[in-house]
Simulated assay, not measured.
Amino acid sequence: MKTKWLLSSSAVVMGLLGLAGTFVPEEISNILEIEPSPITLILLQIIGGLYLGFAMLNWFTRSSLIGGIYNRPVVLGNLIHCLVVFFALIRHLAEDFHFIFVILTLVYLGFAIWFTLVMRSNPLRNQSKMSA
């Protein structure tokens, strides 16, 4: 399984979301029609920092052996993050439809499925097939 693609692509997506949340929280709150109060802006920056941390984690582990018991905390952390965000976006879409949320929902569903497949795979078995 191509875990390097998974971790690289999730690092890029989370990195972009993290940079946006960290450096342009006021613009994000205006786009989402949220009152840009000081607490909202600081929460967006905190969330941006969390996304940047996940992006760095994924970027620096992308070349490691991943799947099954190998790097399980990385896979499980990403899987839980993707599932929680996916369900939050589904719940939001039921109340208020925004095109950007549809795209994010599909992206997070794809990542959740992919991380589930990686967690259930055996990277050593996949490696032996490639070298044979």
Rank of each mutant, 00 (worst) to 15 (best):
M1P: 09
K2M: 09
K2I: 08
K2H: 13
K4E: 15
W5T: 15
L7A: 07
S9C: 04
S10K: 01
V12H: 02
V12L: 13
V13W: 04
G15M: 04
L16T: 07
L17I: 08
L17R: 07
L17P: 02
L19D: 07
G21W: 02
G21F: 03
G21P: 01
G21S: 06
T22D: 02
T22Q: 10
T22N: 04
T22F: 09
F23I: 08
V24I: 15
E26F: 06
E27C: 02
S29W: 02
N30L: 13
I31W: 15
E33V: 11
I34G: 02
I34Q: 10
E35K: 12
E35T: 08
P38A: 05
I39G: 13
T40R: 12
T40F: 05
T40Q: 14
I42M: 14
L43F: 10
L44C: 05
Q45S: 11
Q45M: 12
I46V: 14
I46W: 10
G48Q: 03
G48A: 05
G49H: 06
G49S: 08
G49K: 08
L50V: 12
L52D: 07
G53M: 06
A55R: 01
M56N: 09
M56T: 15
M56L: 15
N58V: 04
N58F: 10
N58C: 06
W59Y: 15
W59M: 12
W59F: 15
F60V: 15
F60W: 11
T61M: 11
R62H: 12
L65S: 09
I66Y: 05
I66T: 11
I66R: 04
I66Q: 04
G68P: 10
I69T: 14
Y70W: 13
Y70R: 06
N71G: 10
R72W: 10
P73V: 03
P73C: 03
V74T: 11
V74L: 09
V75T: 12
V75W: 02
L76A: 10
G77K: 04
G77C: 08
N78D: 11
I80Q: 07
C82N: 14
C82A: 15
L83Y: 10
L83V: 15
L83M: 13
V84W: 07
F87I: 14
F87Q: 11
A88C: 13
A88Q: 10
I90F: 07
H92D: 13
L93E: 01
L93N: 03
A94I: 08
E95A: 14
E95V: 08
D96F: 06
D96R: 13
F97N: 09
H98L: 13
H98K: 14
F99P: 08
F99Y: 13
I100Q: 06
I103N: 00
I103A: 00
I103S: 00
T105N: 03
T105C: 05
L106R: 00
L106Y: 00
L106A: 00
V107A: 01
V107E: 00
V107P: 00
Y108K: 01
L109R: 01
F111Y: 05
F111K: 00
F111W: 01
I113G: 00
W114T: 03
F115G: 00
F115I: 01
V118K: 02
M119R: 04
M119F: 05
M119Q: 04
M119G: 07
R120W: 10
S121E: 05
N122C: 06
N122M: 05
N122H: 09
N122W: 06
N126W: 11
N126C: 09
Q127I: 11
S128M: 13
M130D: 12
S131C: 04
S131Y: 05
